[in-house]
Design a binder for these strands. Sequence first.
RNA 1: CGGGGCGUAGCUCAGCUUGGCUAGAGCGCUACGUUUGGGACGUAGAGGCCGUAGGUUCGAAUCCUAUCGCCCCGACCA
Length: 570
Amino acid sequence: MRLTKMVGRRLKEAPSDAVVISHQFTIRGGYARQVGSGIYSLLPLGKRVIDKIEKIIREEMNSIDGQEVLLPVVMPRELWDESGRYESVGSELLRFKDRTGKEMVLGMTHEEAVVHLARSEIVSYKQLPCMMYQIQTKFRDEPRSRAGLIRVREFTMKDAYSFHRSQEDLDVYYYKCLDAYKKIFSRTGLKNVSIVEADSGMMGGAISHEFMLNTPVGEDSLVLCSSCDYAANREIAVCKRQNVELSEELLPLEKVSTPSVKTIADVSSFLNKDQSKTGKAVFLVDENNRMIFVLIRGDLDVEVSKLKNLISSKELVPAEEGAILSIGCVPGFAGLIGAKLDDVIVVVDESIKNNNNIVVGANEKDFHYINFNFERDFSGKFIEGNIASVTEGDLCVSCGEKLNLSRGIEIGNIFQLGKKYSEPMKFTYLDNDQKEKFPIMGCYGIGVGRLFASIIEDCHDEYGPIWPSSVSPFDVQINALNYKKEEVKAFSDSLYNELSNKNIDVLFDDRDEKAGFQFKDADLMGIPLRIIVSPKTLKDSEVEFKTRDGSESKRISTNEIVSFIKKLLN
RNA sequence: CGGGGCGUAGCUCAGCUUGGCUAGAGCGCUACGUUUGGGACGUAGAGGCCGUAGGUUCGAAUCCUAUCGCCCCGACCA
């Protein structure tokens, strides 16, 4: 490719709304352009990187017996009614009508479509196990897209679905796929990937892992053990809680005056009690408008996703003050004692049960109780669970060492779905015992555009991306300095042709631009190998060879440069 | 959906508070010339319904109202 003909230009300045580095370089380097919120067009340079990434994904998916298919972007509502997700998924599922008024949806993930296909094609146990995958556009009407290609509404995703006769078979395949994912991410050049246990969220199912690129710009919080390999998304992470000593003698419950003392911090200092000797009341409302009263140790925070899983709720939002008052609780002075809890789900974190003589609200303005002991002082119905957020420095459940928090971009995830889709969608096969059975499913996703952005986040310097050769838009770049000069033009043209003829992807900067200008552009395009053809070295029958990462820079004879490059690329 | 910010040239932004003549700068783009190893210089150009629609006014980029879009934080997120 001659740069004079390539569509997509480099910009000296990034648009002001590009905040994260991958977004800035994506725009500045001429890889992609924004069309709307969370909607982008890819330019040739970006498309080439994406193609390279997809090629790696295809190879690894094929190596675990995946069969590539292509499922539709637009689907009739009925298909999503079958799985129940037309109702259960929120407004991120884009619904619309076609010209006849028929209700349609835009695919945000393709379990329904693949089961529709599989149930008509897979009828016998002899066809199992089986995996189908596709690389396809998805649309999710995200409430908030952000950070360039990291969180978008329209995006390309590789999604794979496997079908099995038994849980054991799924287990085996699941870990095979996990290995394939490791290979994919290592082949794309990512250095900093963690595999964490994850919440299965709206996909349903039991076991799930996420592949996270560790970076401060990530949207997810990860809990990583400093010593063993425990790693989990904070949404489901657990820890060994240092319990407050329980040997204390139970003291009599006593109401004390705490004028205008509302927050845990204030209560703690006013009564001179450690925050771990207080109880915090948190009020939430679920999707059915039921009130949830959560009591948790004052120094801990509620992890809403853990709470959701505990009480099987889809959505929890903070309760309004009026709703709290209506169950007899006083915000700032709320506690279990005296609350009207008939229509309330009471959830008690284990940190409360394992604690004595704590301070809780008295449901009366300016009063708290001291010496509250849950088992002794509360007799109503409640659900008990571990719903506290893990924080930095908590101890690992498996080895007892300190846990660290870090941020991550979710670049892939894998789920064991079980029969969540095969059963409601009546996908059965005939087993060798003459019985109809539902296949057990797994699903496996990778966001391709997000992976593109993640590679930039992981591999760049101040001047631009440094593409790993496996995903670089071109294998090598030629910079012709003083292209107008006859000897430069003659040699660089022939070098370009010769390399191209050897099936090497060459980007040829044949513009008559100043050296500095070309080099800055080259840095933004991040091609790992660079050949500089200029009068300076040509007079000694040499060219310069440089790597984008700065690890090498040397002169090479014009006779040897082609074989040298060829050998490097192998 | 809550909070905040921004819409003026392809990009970055000034002008708006205090309304006034033909709306500006830098970068980029076109032509010519001079330059030529880390984003050169000169000269001459092209490029704008100041997001959109109403309103106030003799007069609106500037004031008012509505609306649309985009970004950031939060909520949310296979």
